[in-house]
């Protein structure tokens, strides 16, 4: 199947997914469960990753900017600049993009194989025969839950990144906690938060909708279900990075 027919099939899938749920009470019940699966279950991994990433970024940025070199034997760059770089990277890139790449592996693979399994065991067919719109029934709660929980995780990741950075300053004499915060304050733009939120929602949609799509069109057996998971993750990562670039160019390109 070539790229364009696949885009077409994805569009048709989304057309069915975006229909009104047939029973709201059932829909919300499933959505809350999915919010738990996507959000709460990912909290630990997101916390760990954001924390370490924040610490590492701070240490490395400080190393690059504050080490005197042969070219500039004396310290030219004020220390707080490290805080500016770290906080801007966190808001614009590390929190939304890295978190979502991790969630692609966790949430995306999970959704693709869960729906894929429903497909090959004919549970999807069973929904259809009952008169249930199966695409919407299995995918919409996951997409809605993702759109609520993934941006929330990203906001949390942002604070955790800075916490990691703050902890890292305790282990170095080159940079103090106050430098870090001062630098962050100086370059803070509300637009950065907007860009982060735009990325969050787009990435959340990519993760949940692509993985649902990949699972829904699984054909075959257990092997193909596994393949659907892997395939979904690869595609999600590519699309996330592609849209990351597009958004960066639109909002920040000079």
């Amino acid at each position: 199947m070539n790229f364009f027919t696949e885009i077409g099939r994805f569009m048709i899938f989304m057309k069915y997914v975006m229909k009104r749920p047939q029973k709201w009470s059932v829909f919300w019940k499933i959505t809350f469960r999915e919010m738990h699966n996507i959000g709460i279950e990912s909290l630990l991994v997101v916390t760990l990753i954001a924390f370490f990433l924040g610490a590492v970024t701070t240490i490395q940025t400080a190393n690059q900017l504050l080490t005197p070199s042969d070219l500039f034997p004396t310290q030219l760059i004020p220390k707080f600049v490290v805080g500016s770089v770290v906080s801007t990277s966190a808001i614009l890139e590390l929190a939304p993009t890295i978190t979502c790449l991790v969630l692609a592996g966790k949430v995306g693979a999970n959704i693709a194989s869960e729906i894929g399994n429903k497909k090959i065991s004919e549970q999807i067919d069973a929904y259809e025969v009952m008169g249930i719109n199966s695409a919407s029934f299995v995918a919409l709660p996951k997409i809605v839950a993702g759109l609520i929980m993934i941006p929330s995780l990203i906001i949390a990741a942002n604070f955790l990144l800075m916490t990691g950075g703050a902890v890292a300053t305790k282990f170095t004499s080159a940079l103090s906690f106050d430098d870090l915060i001062e630098g962050a304050r100086m370059v803070f733009h509300p637009e950065y938060v907007q860009i982060m939120m735009i990325k969050s929602f787009i990435f959340a949609f990519i993760i949940t909708s692509l993985s649902s799509y990949q699972g829904y069109y699984t054909e075959g057996g257990a092997l193909e279900v596994g393949a659907a998971g892997t395939y979904a993750v690869t595609r999600i990562c590519i699309f996330i990075l592609f849209f990351d670039l597009v958004i960066a160019q639109i909002f920040l390109g000079l």
């Binding site: 399994n117 065991s121 004919e122 549970q123 067919d125 069973a126 259809e128 008169g131």
Partner: peptide, 23 residues
């Protein structure tokens, strides 16, 4: 149309060869 089919299907009960129970 799809919606009309779904409406009709509400009157259909089906037992699948491999059951297709919701696991």
């Amino acid at each position: 149309e799809y919606d009309q089919k779904q409406e009709l299907r509400k009157q259909i009960g089906m037992l699948f060869q491999n059951n297709a129970l919701f696991d």
